[in-house]
Design a protein around this nucleic acid. Structure first.
Length: 419
DNA sequence: TCTGGGGTCCTAGGACCC
DNA sequence: TCTGGGGTCCTAGGACCC
């Protein structure tokens, strides 16, 4: 069987470790724990190159031309020093011949779905984290060895979609995620359980998903620079660095990660849009019109998903990049643009404290509910109304008897009880 | 002619209720 | 008159991710 050979070959490129392979570990259910992580290479740029052959092999970037940033740069552009999220103006100064194309999100989503379809060939347990990234659990698939599955996924995506991906394979999420990002593009790194500490220990903590620049700085101030430092830190040092807690970060640094792959994507928790203007503006008419457009877009998606929202947020960004956000909740969830126009405009005035021109306005809806009319009058989000209803119910019953007014579930019960 | 647009999660204080 | 603790919601801000 080619299992060991294959893993060894792939691994030898990466870890220069010819040690004998042990069996993969088992979890409590007796299944192997084998998690893959797939991460597309320069996804937006690659999709545009795949869709338009004229862009292939060229230094190109996806993004807005004027006040935008580089959302994705082709590997040819990266060689010239173009990276995400560099201001596009900067990129064009650096490379005047850079081809800039706008994003096409319908196309990106289509490629994304196709890309993950090649993963579903091997397991139904796929956790899609973003348009170009996801985990998958191969523990239940005994038909094919995991490393071969990853190689096949990579091959199929390259052949059929003309884009490339990098992947990592390991006993848990943290390992596979880091492994997939370590050797881009077209990387494929497999980490065996006994290799975990050797793999993680030398890595700087910037590879830890969730520890951004602020956290890294604080950890560095406490002499924590690498996974090994964090893995071996004493309780005192750990608590000092994290301001209490930190144990779960330490576990991750040791390669211990119990998080399962969660297939089903929960419902969206918010819908929002923002827009940077072509030029800074303090023109109220202009700002109001833009705000209404953002409301329209957010509400449109809200309604498409059959949701309604109780809380709305308006954020303004000034020409000096400072920001203020204000939010407010209403009693009744709304799902019409008119529910939010006036409220959003009032909130914008509240947020716009400094009378300084704005470069951006953002609008977001949160606190989401199913837009269906409440099946039960009493399931109102508005507590006062709920109480008022209950009081009326109680009073009517007191006056005319319990059966005078019944709730739906009571009616069923009464009917069942009748001879 | 510096710094996008889409999100999630966490913290923390105050209000309010039990 | 003084003294609680727990829980939840609201709002503001910030870190972080792709």
């Amino acid at each position: 069987m080619s299992f060991n050979l294959n893993i060894k070959r792939i691994r030898s490129e990466v870890l220069q470790d010819g040690a004998q392979l042990p069996d993969l570990p088992t979890d409590t259910s007796g299944e192997r724990s084998v998690i893959g992580h797939l991460d597309a290479d320069a996804f937006f740029a690659s999709v545009q190159q795949a869709a338009d052959p004229r862009l292939r092999g060229k230094a190109m970037a996806v993004g807005g031309r004027q006040r935008g940033i580089v959302a994705s740069a082709s590997y040819e552009a990266r060689k010239l020093g173009i990276y995400t999220p560099m201001p596009m103006a900067h990129a064009l100064r650096l490379c005047p011949d850079l081809i800039v194309v706008p994003g096409d999100f319908a196309r990106f989503e289509q490629f994304s779905r196709l890309m993950f379809s090649f993963v579903y060939d091997y397991t139904p347990k796929v956790e899609i984290c973003s348009i170009d990234e996801g985990y998958f659990d191969l523990g239940g698939n005994h038909e094919v060895d995991p490393a071969e599955a990853l190689a096949a996924i990579q091959r199929n995506i390259a052949e059929r979609l003309k884009i490339t991906v990098s992947q990592g394979l390991g006993p848990n999420k943290i390992i596979s995620q880091i492994a997939s990002k370590l050797r881009k593009p077209r990387g494929l790194i497999c980490v065996q359980p006994h290799e975990v500490r050797g793999f993680l220990d030398p890595l700087p903590l910037k590879h830890m998903h969730g520890l951004g620049p602020v956290a890294q700085k604080r950890l560095a101030d406490h002499n924590l620079h690498t996974f090994k430092d964090l893995a071996e830190a004493g309780t005192e040092q750990l608590h000092a660095a994290f301001g209490g807690g930190g144990e779960s970060w330490q576990a991750l640094a040791r390669g211990i990660d119990p998080r399962p792959v969660i297939s089903s994507h929960g419902p969206a928790k918010s819908y929002g849009h923002q827009e940077t203007f072509g030029h800074d503006s303090a023109d109220e008419e202009f700002l109001r019109n833009h705000l209404r457009r953002l409301v329209d877009k957010a509400v449109e998606r809200l309604r498409e998903d059959g949701m309604a929202a109780r809380t709305y947020h308006v954020r303004v960004r000034y020409k000096d990049m400072s920001e203020t956000e204000r939010s407010q909740s209403v009693d009744e969830p709304g799902d019409l643009p008119e529910d939010f126009y006036t409220l959003a405009e009032a909130l914008m005035k509240k947020a716009w404290q400094k009378r300084m021109p704005l470069r951006l306005i953002a609008f977001r809806l949160t606190n989401l509910y199913k837009a269906l009319p409440p099946a039960d009058l009493f399931e109102q989000p508005n507590r006062e109304r709920r109480e008022a209803l209950q009081n009326v119910l109680t009073e009517i019953r007191a006056r005319y008897g319990r059966q005078a007014l019944m709730r739906g579930h009571d009616v069923g019960m009464e009917a069942a009880r009748r001879p």
